[in-house]
Design a protein around this nucleic acid. Structure first.
Lengths: 198, 198, 198, 198
DNA sequence: TATGAATGAGTGTTCATTCAT
DNA sequence: CATGAATGAACACTCATTCAT
């Protein structure tokens, strides 16, 4: 078919569902959700479109599955954050852990960031918003100044941007990631100091 | 047809092109580029799809037109920035001016941010990237530490985020915008200080 | 395409809508609504499926259009009936007029009778039911005995059956139609006599 | 799955075939043959589609089975009718027995009446027509007037209509059925009298 | 007896685009 | 300046059916 097929017929048995998710994530991240057709996914896998429908009820459900599978760590992080004291150390640790979660599910987060308009109208839109709100709640001091609140959100966004936009900043990836992390931690630290006196 | 029409037939004469752009921007920003069909735009205007093709050769050209019309200020800002000395004051002024440009063309920037995946594949994708690179070049010190470079990019992203994502931070819009601006200026200031000694 | 095309390209201009309705009625009546695909209709006309969608918003709307165009006479009949005195002569005239309306829109009524299950779930289902109820109301005496009410409904059904099921009764069509009409009139007459004394 | 399942796993053993037929009849009658998918039937039963194919070779065969199982009484009635003298009493008895057969297999007959277009193209179409013809032959006097022949067919149709269409006539079901029966018997009686002198 | 996995052919529908008028 | 009419290509989705296990 003039299209790359992943794996032979042998390995395909029993893990088609996984393979669909893998290919879908790859294509969604690369081209966007709308521009990726089920035909395309199916062709990459060497199966028919109908096969996709055996494993997922709609195109959207594929995305939902991806989302659920990959954002659990963030949920756990929020859960954890809620139970910690609101100290500076906690917040710094949250940033560090979020950075790790982000790196682990990089393609999905890239997708989420680049397809916000699409995601907003889909079922996962709200879930994503909730998660962001949850994150904010555990690093933002409710009675901090507006500027300090902005600093916290900015820290999160810096991490996001670090994943994708900052790739052309030069330096090797590991150094870059450390620099990004440093800035993010710096931001929450400043925010914390602002709220709790030097 | 149960659809809001903008303006009466009288006012429509002669400025259809403008009205197409207005409605298109509104819908692109609201629903995304792919999910907005030409039929929809035409219906909102009370004209036929074919009429759109009198004014624009393709759907993409509508977007290009929007982009060109609204990002000129940013281009001029970059032009201006290039001719200034690389002092702290200049950088702070750049941030201030960018903030203003952003506010003036808010719907377009919202669109650009929420439809990155789409934009990337379109003709304006490269133009947008160039512009961002231009911006970076005039606020980033080439020999600054990686972290300080990150701070500068972060400042820009903070402004972007301020436009949309931070709307649920509370406070009235004007206060919020000031807070965002403060943080962004703070970031470039820190970056500058880092590079040029306290 | 190996498919009969109706009319040359010349005659097609401007009356495609009508031609769609004609072909659709023909096919719906012949094969049923569900088994008739839009591809089939389009092929019979020598146009693309998309052309159908220029003239009708959905498949169902084609049917609705057919229905509305062809059942107006029945509506008018009901309207007329409501304004008449409830005499025997009126009822007999109603039966006669209904017979004529039926004959004029025979294919549609055949379709309605043979696709009841389908029609029930469609938008026209209720309209059809309403019309039948309206008919009943103008020939049934509300305080007639149950049996006499049945006679009236039976008269209507006899007319329906006469259109299609009784075609293999022998005799020439005109004679058959007269016989059917006679029986139907007989039924409402008996019903009327039952209710109003000899 | 949010779907009614009939019976527990215990009772299911061994009588799946029956249960398939039951559910299929229920759904066919309710939604029509075409709009009822095998997936739907399978889900209602709590089995997979493939299981249906163990018991029936095609979807159509399910319908054939239903038909055969439920119309045997009518066949026997026709057989019986053929052997009786063509007296008025015989005809009246035929109507009475047919009424009973109809009531016993009501859902199937409802289905047949509401899905004529579908049934016509299926294998059972001819069988059904044959049966109707058989019925006609035993209540219609071949040398009766056309009108009297119509009366006989009308009697049959009155019974059919009585099953479904006349449900909104008011009165309790039993009374209604009696009224319908009365009219049907009346019709064949008139037809007989017409043919054999007062 | 049944299931898990898949297919091929189809469905109705939408889209950006074209062009004679 | 704009419309009416149409197209070709695509899309998400559904269906009856098959078959190895």
């Amino acid at each position: 078919m003039g299209v790359t097929m992943h794996g032979t017929k042998q390995q395909r048995r029993g893990n088609t569902r996984r393979r669909i998710l893998d290919v879908a994530l790859e294509l969604f991240a690369e081209q966007g959700y709308e521009k990726t057709s089920l035909r395309e996914i199916a062709e990459h896998l060497g199966v028919t479109k109908a096969a996709l429908y055996y494993h997922f009820r709609t195109k959207e459900e594929i995305l939902v599955s991806l989302f659920e599978g990959l954002t659990q760590p963030v949920e756990e992080l929020i859960e954890w954050g809620r139970r910690q004291p609101h100290t500076l150390e906690t917040k710094q640790e949250i940033v560090r852990r979020y950075d790790r979660a982000l790196a682990d599910a990089a393609p999905l987060f890239r997708f989420m960031q680049e397809n916000q308009a699409t995601v907003r109208e889909l079922r996962i839109g709200d879930a994503f918003k909730d998660r962001m709100r949850g994150l904010k709640d555990i690093i933002i001091d409710p009675d901090a100044s507006l500027a300090d609140q902005v600093r916290c959100v900015s820290a999160i966004f810096t991490l996001h941007a670090g994943m994708f936009v900052m790739q052309d900043l030069g330096g090797d990836p590991e150094e870059r990631r450390e620099a990004v992390l440093e800035v993010a931690i710096d931001l929450v630290t400043q925010a914390h100091r602002g709220a709790h006196g030097s």
